[in-house]
Simulated assay, not measured.
Amino acid sequence: MRFLSRRLVMPYDLNYAGSLFGGRVLQWIDEESAIYAICKLDTNVLVTKHIGAVTFESPAMQGDIVEFGLVTKSVGRTSITVTCLVRNKVTKKTICLADDIVFVKLDPDTREPTPHGKTLEMFAEATF
C-alpha cells in the first residue's frame, strides 16, 4: 500500500471530544479515494457507488498529520474498488480503515455506467 497524501488535523476538524471528527475523515477518505480512482482510470467522470466497512481504531488529535494509503482491490467492467487506510504519519497507528470503496465510470452525456477499459493487471506495475 502506498501512502499518497497527507492532511494536518486542524481545530475545525475536531469533534466535541477534541479528536478528529468521524464525518471529516469520511469526507477525506471519499475525496482521496476518488482522486486515486480518477488517476487509475484516466477519467474524472466517476461517482462513488459504495463505501463498505469503515473501522475506526484510534483517535487523531489537533496537530497530528494523517496520511492516506490506497490500493486497488478489484476492477470491474465499469468500476474500480479501492481500500483506504488512514494512519498517523508519526506513530504509524491506524486511525481508520475504509474497505470496498466502489467508484463507477459514467458516460459524460448519458450519465449511465460505461466501460473504462482497464484491468487489475494493468495496475500491478503502475506507479504515481
Rank of each mutant, 00 (worst) to 15 (best):
residue 102 V to T: 04
residue 22 G to F: 13
residue 20 L to Y: 10
residue 49 K to P: 02
residue 113 P to Y: 02
residue 109 D to R: 14
residue 35 I to V: 13
residue 63 G to P: 12
residue 97 L to Y: 07
residue 35 I to T: 09
residue 81 T to V: 01
residue 6 R to W: 01
residue 84 C to M: 05
residue 57 E to V: 10
residue 111 R to D: 02
residue 91 T to P: 00
residue 20 L to D: 07
residue 89 K to P: 00
residue 90 V to P: 02
residue 54 V to P: 08
residue 80 I to L: 06
residue 44 N to F: 14
residue 9 V to P: 03
residue 118 K to P: 11
residue 32 E to I: 07
residue 93 K to F: 09
residue 101 I to C: 05
residue 124 A to F: 12
residue 73 K to W: 05
residue 93 K to S: 00
residue 110 T to G: 01
residue 113 P to G: 09
residue 115 P to S: 14
residue 5 S to E: 07
residue 12 Y to T: 06
residue 98 A to C: 04
residue 50 H to I: 07
residue 68 F to C: 05
residue 99 D to P: 03
residue 76 G to D: 08
residue 64 D to A: 11
residue 61 M to G: 08
residue 15 N to H: 10
residue 31 E to N: 07
residue 42 D to W: 09
residue 120 L to A: 12
residue 15 N to Y: 07
residue 15 N to L: 03
residue 106 L to E: 01
residue 51 I to Y: 01
residue 87 R to E: 01
residue 43 T to Y: 10
residue 73 K to P: 01
residue 84 C to R: 03
residue 8 L to V: 14
residue 69 G to T: 05
residue 21 F to D: 04
residue 91 T to D: 00
residue 36 Y to C: 05
residue 93 K to N: 11
residue 15 N to Q: 14
residue 96 C to Q: 01
residue 59 P to D: 13
residue 104 V to E: 03
residue 92 K to P: 00
residue 81 T to Q: 12
residue 115 P to N: 07
residue 107 D to F: 09
residue 75 V to W: 01
residue 97 L to C: 03
residue 28 W to A: 06
residue 4 L to K: 04
residue 98 A to Q: 02
residue 36 Y to P: 01
residue 108 P to F: 10
residue 70 L to S: 14
residue 107 D to K: 08
residue 89 K to S: 10
residue 105 K to R: 15
residue 120 L to D: 00
residue 105 K to P: 01
residue 32 E to P: 03
residue 36 Y to I: 04
residue 106 L to C: 08
residue 15 N to G: 14
residue 3 F to G: 01
residue 98 A to N: 00
residue 39 C to Y: 12
residue 87 R to Q: 10
residue 127 T to S: 11
residue 38 I to E: 10
residue 90 V to C: 06
residue 20 L to K: 08
residue 112 E to F: 11
residue 18 G to Y: 03
residue 65 I to F: 12
residue 106 L to T: 09
residue 56 F to K: 09
residue 120 L to K: 15
residue 24 R to N: 14
residue 83 T to M: 02
residue 64 D to L: 06
residue 124 A to Q: 06
residue 38 I to G: 00
residue 124 A to W: 09
residue 85 L to W: 00
residue 9 V to E: 01
residue 36 Y to L: 13
residue 37 A to C: 12
residue 123 F to V: 15
residue 68 F to S: 06
residue 87 R to F: 03
residue 108 P to M: 13
residue 116 H to K: 11
residue 128 F to Q: 10
residue 23 G to P: 05
residue 35 I to R: 05
residue 26 L to H: 07
residue 94 T to L: 02
residue 10 M to D: 00
residue 87 R to S: 12
residue 24 R to P: 03
residue 29 I to A: 00
residue 77 R to Y: 04
residue 71 V to P: 04
residue 95 I to D: 00
residue 119 T to V: 09
residue 50 H to W: 08
residue 81 T to K: 12
residue 9 V to D: 02
residue 114 T to M: 15
residue 85 L to H: 05
residue 49 K to T: 08
residue 7 R to N: 08
residue 97 L to A: 03
residue 97 L to N: 04
residue 57 E to M: 14
residue 62 Q to S: 14
residue 10 M to G: 13
residue 58 S to P: 03
residue 8 L to C: 09
residue 93 K to G: 01
residue 30 D to G: 12
residue 96 C to T: 15
residue 104 V to S: 06
residue 119 T to F: 11
residue 65 I to L: 12
residue 15 N to R: 08
residue 85 L to G: 02
